[in-house]
C-alpha cells in the first residue's frame, strides 16, 4: 500500500515538475485560453443573440471555454504515456517492485493538476468575459475543474494503457474528444438542442462538467434556470461515478500490461 502511494506521488510529481519547467508549455498555458475566449467568444457573440435579459453570449460561453481547455490539456497529458512506457521513464517504473495500477492513478492525477493550472488562468480572465467571481466561487470552481480534469484524464489513461502506437491513440482520441467537446453544451444550452441530440449530450461527461461550472458561476444570476440542466450536486455525483469507473478500468489495464 505504501509502495502504491509512493509511486502515485512520484509519477504525479514528475508530471508537475516537467510542466512547470517547460517554458513553451507555460506560454501555451497562458495563450491558449485567451485565444479560445477572444476568438470563440467574441466571434460567436454577434452571431448568437440570447433572449435572456442581462446575459450575453460571451458570458454564456465562458464556462464552456473552461471545460474545453480542461478537456484538451487533460487528454493530451495522457498521450505521453504511450511513448513513455515504450522508450521512457515509465519503463523504469514497470520494472520496479511497485503496483502498476499506481501508474494509472499517478498519471491521471498529474494530468488533472496541469489541466487545473491551465483552467486557473481562465478564472483570472473572468472579467474579460464580463463575469465577476468571488473568492468562494473561485475555490469551488478550482475543485470542480479538478474533478472534470480527473474524469477526462482517466479516459485518456485508460485508452493509452491499451494502446501500443501513437497513431492509434490519436485516432481514438479524435473520435472521443471532438464529440465530447461538441456535445458538452459549451456553445448551446441543452434545452435549445434538437430532441435527438439531448440524450447524446447526457452521455457526455463533459456536459455535466460544464453544467456544474455554470451552476457555480451564475449562482446569483436570475437567468440560472435557463442555462443549467440540473443541480451542481447531480453534476458532481455523475462526474465522480464516471471517474471512478474509468480510473478503475485504467488501473486494471495497467496491472495487466506485460
Amino acid at each position: 500500500m505504501q509502495a502504491f502511494f509512493a509511486t502515485v506521488y512520484i509519477i504525479w510529481l514528475r508530471d508537475v515538475k516537467r510542466f512547470t519547467r517547460e517554458g513553451t508549455r507555460v506560454l501555451a498555458m497562458l495563450g491558449q485560453p485567451l485565444l479560445y475566449l477572444l476568438i470563440m467568444g467574441q466571434g460567436l457573440r454577434s452571431a448568437f443573440k440570447m433572449n435572456i435579459p442581462g446575459f450575453d453570449y460571451l458570458s454564456f460561453v465562458y464556462p464552456g471555454v473552461i471545460g474545453m481547455s480542461v478537456l484538451f490539456t487533460a487528454i493530451f497529458s495522457s498521450v505521453s504515456i504511450i511513448w513513455d512506457k515504450q522508450f521512457g521513464f515509465l519503463k523504469e517504473v514497470l520494472v520496479a517492485p511497485v503496483p502498476r495500477a499506481a501508474i494509472a492513478m499517478g498519471k491521471a492525477l498529474g494530468g488533472s493538476t496541469t489541466a487545473c493550472l491551465q483552467g486557473g488562468i481562465l478564472l483570472i480572465l473572468a472579467p474579460l468575459a464580463g463575469v465577476s467571481l468571488g473568492l468562494g466561487q473561485i475555490i469551488v470552481l478550482a475543485g470542480l475543474m479538478f474533478i472534470i480534469a480527473f474524469s477526462v484524464a482517466s479516459i485518456g489513461t485508460l485508452v493509452a494503457a491499451r494502446m501500443e502506437t501513437m497513431e492509434g491513440f490519436h485516432l481514438i482520441m479524435n473520435f472521443l474528444t471532438l464529440p465530447m467537446f461538441l456535445l458538452s453544451g459549451a456553445f448551446f444550452p441543452l434545452n435549445t438542442a434538437p430532441a435527438w441530440m439531448q440524450p447524446l449530450m447526457r452521455l457526455d461527461p463533459l456536459f455535466y462538467g460544464v453544467d456544474a461550472l455554470r451552476n457555480v458561476i451564475y449562482a446569483d444570476s436570475p437567468a440560472l434556470s435557463y442555462v443549467v440542466a440540473q443541480t451542481v450536486t447531480v453534476d458532481v455525483l455523475v462526474l465522480l461515478a464516471f471517474s471512478l469507473v474509468m480510473i478503475g478500468l485504467g488501473m486494471m489495464s495497467f496491472s495487466r500490461t506485460e
Binding site: 505504501q2 509512493a6 512520484i10 519547467r21 521512457g88 519503463k91 523504469e92 517504473v93 520494472v95 520496479a96
Partner: peptide
C-alpha cells in the same frame, strides 16, 4: 532483487540527475 539498464534510454531528461536518482529510490523504498 534486480537493477535494469534498458537498451533505450529510460531517464526523464527534463528532470535533473539527482531527481532521477531520488525518484528511483522512492520507487524501491
Amino acid at each position: 532483487a534486480i537493477g535494469m539498464v534498458f537498451q533505450d534510454q529510460s531517464l526523464d531528461d527534463r528532470l535533473t540527475a539527482e531527481e532521477n536518482m531520488l525518484f528511483h529510490c522512492v520507487l524501491y523504498g
